[in-house]
Design a protein around this nucleic acid. Structure first.
Lengths: 214, 214
DNA sequence: TGTGATATACCCACTATTGGGTAGATCGGG
DNA sequence: CCCGATCTACCCAATAGTGGGTATATCACA
């Protein structure tokens, strides 16, 4: 450790601009030490192995390996390291999924830089931190613990559906009957409270169940 | 002018992080002078009136007044000021619309910081600048100038469609018959070469025809 | 071993969408 | 004054999706 009191932070985001912004902001604080930056989750994991940061500040939307899945890898290899997720979205699914996967906090990219500092401090101190809009979402979930847990099969169907496939197409791709796809679709709609294909597509896009990223 | 040679730049983006990142990056270059930052287009316009920047670097996706519409306001009030758009998306619609509205350049948020500097220099020098993926898109359009011009009515229909409305719903909201909505929908599909509702929804979201921003 | 969740699959009647047309009204430009 | 674009509206037959069910097999967990 360089100082003994400095919080070692690793930044992972596929936007160089955000990475630079974070670094610039964090470096103005003496008690925070940015030990590295990475544009992809796997590269970040590699750096983390060597630098052992206390906090990893990671974007949720990244090509290749997304932030949510990356949480688990970090938890496995570096259980001491605490994860603070950074996202453009305040979607229920993202937030609760992040927490379920073991993230210690979740902040939105449109928060003030002060709040980012506060979040890093809280997470490094072993607490959790959720930015304003986010904590409301979590409180709602406390009462209704089930959130919106689509089963893996339902997610498969939703992904293909939002990609523009018809029930029949999906059935072929998944190797099941069209009738089953319809059942899944019905269940998805019931769970999500969404009636139309357009609504489901929006949901899928907003919740990262779909990929077109570049 | 503070220096005579420094390029005066105004930054507009609703993400404080991106704003800080840009400022941090740009301030390391002596020949660039960040005269202000704003989180909303109107606030940016106000600052621009007083500081008269040579270049406005503006996000395309912003709540209230979006970047595309803002271009026109800047062109009207400050014709000398050149606009460089910054976006997460490399969508054809965005890029060509930006150019048509009078933007001098278009760069993606995932470009390197060096490229941002290059873009600002080019635009300040009276040239245009489009980041790698973007210029390809524009070249395609040169040959096929019509791009994808949905009529205003078609856009209305597509917007509602992608928001999850059925033909009947849309008909009610627009005060026309469901049959007409179906005609519009057919024409949209033909123009866009997209067969499914999911595809249209994706298109609408990717091309900014829909709003849910927060 | 029973219970719940998941994944599979089907039935039925109803409604919506599709893809192929045609066609009148309006409006702006040449 | 005609032409093209746009907006409007309808017809038809075929296919797809909806919303209500029921039902079976599997697997994990209590």
């Amino acid at each position: 450790m360089t100082d003994g009191t400095a919080i070692k932070v690793l930044l992972i985001d596929n936007h160089p601009l955000v990475l630079e912004g974070l670094r610039a902001v964090l470096e103005t604080y003496g008690h925070i030490d940015v030990v590295g930056t990475a544009g992809l989750a796997r590269a970040g994991l590699e750096i983390a192995r060597q630098t052992r940061p206390q906090v990893v500040l990671m974007d949720i939307n990244m090509p290749k390996l997304n932030g949510i899945d990356a949480i688990e890898l970090f938890r496995e290899e570096l259980p001491e390291t605490r994860i603070l997720m950074l996202s453009m979205h305040d979607s229920r699914e993202y937030i609760s999924t992040s927490v379920m996967h073991g993230a210690s906090g979740y902040i939105l990219k449109d928060v003030s830089t002060d709040e980012i500092i506060a979040a890093i401090e809280a997470v490094a101190a072993g607490k959790s931190y959720f930015s304003s809009g986010v904590s409301d979402v979590l409180l709602e979930r406390k009462e209704n613990e089930s959130a919106v847990p689509l089963t893996t099969r339902e997610s498969d169907v939703l992904l293909l559906l939002s990609a523009g496939s018809s029930n029949r197409d999906i059935a072929e791709k998944l190797g099941i009957s069209a009738a089953t796809v319809e059942t899944h679709r019905k269940n998805i709609k019931k769970k999500l409270g969404i009636a139309t294909t357009a609504g489901l597509t929006r949901y899928a896009i907003e919740n990262g169940l779909t990929w077109s990223d570049g």
